[in-house]
Design a protein around this nucleic acid. Sequence first.
DNA 1: AGCGGGATTTTCT
DNA 2: GAAAATCCCGCTT
Length: 195
Amino acid sequence: MPQKSLADFSFLDAPSWEVAPQLLGCELERIFDDGSVVRVKIVEVEAYDQSDEASHSYRGKTMRTETMFGSSGHLYVYFTYGMHYCANIVTSGAGRGAGVLLRAVEPITGIDIIENRRKTTGVNATNGPAKLAQALGIDFDMRGHDLRSGSLRLIPYSPLPRSQIVASPRIGISRAKDTLWRFYIKDNSYVSKPN
DNA sequence: AGCGGGATTTTCT
DNA sequence: GAAAATCCCGCTT
């Protein structure tokens, strides 16, 4: 398989709420240190932006959110509830604090590896932001990782037709509850909370 | 199927 | 010192 050209990642250099639905159907390839490979399809995401009260970047750049203000296509990893890592794909280019939270993925290859890592099977292995982070081995070691190459790669695809995408309020936030910045693939069984 | 609580530590006030 | 872009388990319907 030939390496994708850099131009294929240019769609990330746009506002997060426009990028988010375009990430649905794209894939992630994870190559672990032992050489084993896992591939998944993105089926649920949420957009966050510095203009948005619910975003970690709302109150400006901090030590934690520095990567959100950096280049598009890098990985913003945060730690929450004392035990969970979650991952965002940074969007909007340098200077603007924005990203797209990965909320659910569908395993394509390496399902046995995923289920071993998660100690569970089926949809429960990857139908949540902290679940997929654990499944893909994402923690603070991956902070700021460039998703265009290396051990975790984004593989872009053409956008899905709008009829296959559902927009809804985001999950687990206390502010900006009415903003419809959660996007998921209609009827996909790996979505964390179908409406 | 749905609710309620506990886990556990980083980050910001 | 409190909240957190969550998950899991156990208990009740």
